[in-house]
Design a protein around this nucleic acid. Sequence first.
DNA 1: TTTAGCACTCAGGAATGCGGAGTGCTAAAT
DNA 2: ATTTAGCACTCCGCATTCCTGAGTGCTAAA
Lengths: 352, 352
Amino acid sequence: MELSERKKRILRIIVENYVATAEPVGSKAISAELALSSATIRNEMADLEELGYLEKPHTSAGRVPSPKGYRLYVNELMEEQRLSMEETRQINQALQIKMQELDRVIDQAGKMVAQLTNYPTFALTGGLKRLTIRRFDLIMVDSTSFIVVIMTDSKQVRNKLFKLPTDLSEAQLQLLTTLLNTSFTGKTLEELTPELMRVAEHAAGSAYGLISLVVSFAMECLEDLENRSVYTSGANHLLEHPEYQDVGKAQKLMNYLSDTPRLSSLPLPELSGDDNTKILIGPENVAEELKDTSVVLASYDIGDGMKGVIGVVGPTRMDYAKVAAKLSCVAEGLSHLFGQGELPPGKDGETK
Amino acid sequence: MELSERKKRILRIIVENYVATAEPVGSKAISAELALSSATIRNEMADLEELGYLEKPHTSAGRVPSPKGYRLYVNELMEEQRLSMEETRQINQALQIKMQELDRVIDQAGKMVAQLTNYPTFALTGGLKRLTIRRFDLIMVDSTSFIVVIMTDSKQVRNKLFKLPTDLSEAQLQLLTTLLNTSFTGKTLEELTPELMRVAEHAAGSAYGLISLVVSFAMECLEDLENRSVYTSGANHLLEHPEYQDVGKAQKLMNYLSDTPRLSSLPLPELSGDDNTKILIGPENVAEELKDTSVVLASYDIGDGMKGVIGVVGPTRMDYAKVAAKLSCVAEGLSHLFGQGELPPGKDGETK
DNA sequence: TTTAGCACTCAGGAATGCGGAGTGCTAAAT
DNA sequence: ATTTAGCACTCCGCATTCCTGAGTGCTAAA
């Protein structure tokens, strides 16, 4: 059953007032905005409460939106906030500046969102499966050390400095490189172990345990990249909000956000195609710790069809429109950043 | 003037009790540990207070060590805590496991210390000056993209994926690489800009703005590396401690810790040679925000004589011995990690 | 259907009182 | 000269009480 237009208007006013002030809103405040007496409003509010859209903290406070109320607000009442051109530009520019390795970009993006919204954020990378090494490069540093640079399928790059107890010639390094590239590329993590033994043995004369050293580094990297990386930031903003003046509450949430393994194993909700953001209000969250907080999520494309997620965590009393707009803008910026070069299909395709 | 042995013993008991319980300690509690009546203790405590080693929160609470009291405790009374072999081993092992790029290691080390001590930590890298690029490597990904790997003086490596609107041949890439390596290595940040213009112009025919693209990435990296990097972690632990039940206090400190630029411009105290840790108690800190917190610092060697610092932040009521021991262990582990291959001078040198 | 009026509820701040822990001081004991 | 027992005193923390103001629900009139 549909709510009357008036009830919706009242709900909307309550949500927006409450979001702005963090104080329960009473009938009088509303009667000032609508040309109705407070008594009428009270009747309507009583209905809304009955229907589960409002709650009261105690008998004689004003009303506060319930999660269900926020949900209705988000679904129907909220106006999509469009960021000004200026804001969009600034965000994109800030992202551009820090264009670097994938990990860094995402971390930076998270920090940016935290700063933009004044809420803690977290960002997850895709959790790539069946990753393989695409290429090894060994770079000579000096006679006893070299750097291994490996690149994966996903075009991510890792490197490490190796120091040896013995000298190594440029030629040996060259040999090692080709050996690695011919035998260990295109293999998944599981395929690597037995292969390793065989080849290492076979080429044993030329380079001690070097191969196994490098390959195990590669394996470490694969393992690391196949797991989701988690970045959190802006936890300090939590304490700014009145709902977290209670240290116990704040602590519970902060601990949750610091629990990287936990976050990384979160099931990512399927984000609907048309809009890339999703809002989870209070008890809609699965994690116990988030039952009275809200999460705004946006997904971004890493390329190769892989997706990552970036999210904002805050009290249910949150300016969803603004947060979603900003978050979405950053997520789009990220997608664009990773996708650059892969032309967006038909974007500038139509002539004229 | 020296304190009597007995006064020192009392001070020590007070510090240790207070550290353990977070409750001001009264005369009775002490008289239980020493074979003296509470009255005697009270007299002694009055003296200690007069001398500035103790404070009382109010008339009828017990006593609490003042910063000066902690200082004396740290300098003279505290027993160096030796970690058990087992603990040391565990720490080192944990460090080994995560042996990766410098940045990651340090970040990890910070997280580890936070977890080990239950206090927030921060870690700074050296702030390398007059850094130069040592070598460029360009790795072909596919016909329109390649990865640039640059290595600096300091053996740090950065990389970035470039995508082009046009095709690029392996030969062109090769050419570009040698060009970059001959003209842009060994130059400091300041030396790069004018040079760039000249050479880019000179070789313009072969590769559009590619050179300038790569070089400006290199410059970005240099700039980034010349500034200190800051890693903080474990802020969530702050709220565990009773002194930060006051949200205002906690927030002030957390904001300070999130203020990366501020931290990165901290003047690093010279750490004395024999011991690599330094303890700053309450008002000994320069930063206003730290006036009533303590900081334990340890420095580690990055190599090439460069040093970084890793620190723990917490209330003045801190188990200095334990924290210092753990921190120092990690810092040593780090130094060792970066220095591996550079044999420690004469460590096993003496025969028999 | 809306509104005015009124009795009712309840959080939260100020005022008060009380018990306990710990002190400082004095005078006796060693 | 120290140490100790004893006692009056201070002051936090806690609970209790009281009060006020904001906001409600209900009823009856417009």
